[in-house]
Design a binder for these strands. Structure first.
Length: 196
DNA sequence: GGAGCGATGTCCT
DNA sequence: GGACATCGCTCCG
C-alpha cells in the first residue's frame, strides 16, 4: 500500500475522479487508522463549470482549488456539514474532485462513535454521503483544509493497495442546481456504500 | 421505502 | 439577504 503521488492529481478532474475509484482514504487520529475505500466521486471543473465553487474566480474560500494538486479542500455547507475534495490540475488552475462515498475498511467502531451511532451500526450509514464520510473520519475545516494528501506525514492521505474496480458507472452529479446534466459523477457499479 | 421539509453557518452579492 | 456539492426525521402507504 503506497501513498498516491502529487502527479496523479495534475490531470483533468473528470479523469482523476474516475481513477480515484478503488483507492483508499487513510485518516490517522492518534494511534488509530480509519480507512475507507473510495466508491463514489464527482468532478468539479474550473472557470467553465457553473456548479463548481471555483466558477466565480479566486476567493478566500476556494483558494485551495486554485493551488497545487493533491491538497484537501474542505468546505462547510447547509450550516452543519463538511465536504471533502482534492485539488486537481497544475498550480494556478482550478479544479477538484468531491469524495461522495466510501466503503468502510478499518476502524468501523470509531467511525460509528464519531457519527454518533451505536457500535455495530450498518456500515452503509457510516460513510455513504459526502457529509457522512467527513463526520466518520473526523474531518472539518480547521486543520484539514489545504493539507497535502500526498505526504506520508499527513494525517489524511490517499493510498493505493492495487485494488481495481470491476465496473464503473457514470451519471450526472447529485444535489446541484446548475450544470446538473453533465456526466461527472463516477461510482463503482453495484457497490452497496454508494450514496442515494 | 419514498416524498417532503426543517435545521443551521458561511460566503458572496 | 439569499443560496447552498446535505442529512435525518416525519408522515404516508
Amino acid at each position: 500500500m503506497k501513498v498516491v503521488p502529487a502527479k496523479f492529481y495534475v490531470g483533468r478532474p473528470e479523469v482523476v475522479a474516475r481513477e480515484l475509484l478503488g483507492k483508499l482514504i487513510v485518516r490517522k487520529i492518534g494511534r488509530q487508522r480509519l480507512i475507507g475505500r473510495i466508491v463514489e466521486t464527482e468532478a468539479y471543473l474550473g472557470l467553465d463549470d457553473p456548479a463548481s465553487h471555483s466558477f466565480p474566480g479566486l476567493t478566500a474560500r476556494n483558494s485551495v482549488m486554485f493551488g497545487p494538486p493533491g491538497r484537501a479542500y474542505v468546505y462547510f455547507i447547509y450550516g452543519m456539514h463538511y465536504c471533502l475534495n482534492v485539488s486537481c490540475e497544475p498550480d494556478g488552475q482550478a479544479g477538484g474532485v468531491l469524495f461522495r462515498a466510501l466503503e468502510p475498511v478499518s476502524g468501523l467502531a470509531e467511525m460509528a462513535r464519531l457519527r454518533g451511532l451505536p457500535d455495530g451500526a450498518s456500515p452503509r450509514l457510516l460513510t455513504s454521503g459526502p457529509g457522512r464520510l467527513c463526520q466518520a473520519l473526523g474531518i472539518m475545516r480547521d486543520g484539514i483544509n489545504g493539507m497535502d494528501l500526498t505526504s506520508p506525514k499527513s494525517v489524511l492521505q490517499i493510498a493505493d493497495d492495487g485494488y481495481v474496480p470491476e465496473g464503473v458507472t457514470v451519471t450526472p452529479r447529485i444535489g446541484i442546481t446548475k450544470a446538473s446534466d453533465r456526466p461527472l459523477r463516477f461510482l463503482i457499479s453495484g457497490n452497496k456504500s454508494v450514496s442515494k
